[in-house]
């Protein structure tokens, strides 16, 4: 690992910088989506927005793991993706009204 870093220093620096910059942009985009969480108008809009922010955070974690050369962050990203999924499922489950669906 160390040997690889030394031989490819210049190129790796560029990739690292790109990764970190991209992570910063994605954070800004997530902040924009936060508008939808605040504005709503329904609970479901907010949850969809939170879900998008969650996916953005997974992207940020993945980009940071490459940008900072910390591969273990990928494990955190996996766990975060799992939690994000469970959140949506739970909200969807508890706000579902089984008799409310019109099929025809």
């Amino acid at each position: 690992m160390a040997a690889r870093e030394r031989t490819v220093t210049t190129m790796s620096d560029l990739a690292n910088t790109v990764m970190l910059a991209a992570a910063a942009i994605v954070v800004v985009l997530a902040a924009i989506v936060l508008y939808r969480v605040v504005a709503g108008p329904t609970t479901h809009d907010r949850v969809v927005a939170v879900n998008v922010i969650g996916t953005s955070i997974v992207i940020v974690l993945a980009l940071l793991s490459a940008g900072l050369d910390r591969p273990e962050y990928l494990d955190i990203a996996i766990v975060y993706a799992l939690l994000n999924f469970v959140l949506s499922l739970v909200v969807g489950r508890f706000t579902y009204q089984s008799d409310g669906v019109k099929w025809r």
């Binding site: 479901h44 879900n51 996996i78 999924f85 949506s88 969807g92 579902y96 409310g100 669906v101």
Partner: peptide
């Protein structure tokens, strides 16, 4: 994981929204 769960999560939420008559 993301390719499998994202559609499922969206489905769970829109399903709940539709059942609530939105």
């Amino acid at each position: 994981f993301i390719y499998y769960t994202n559609p499922t999560a969206a489905h769970a939420i829109t399903r709940a929204a539709y059942s609530r008559g939105i």
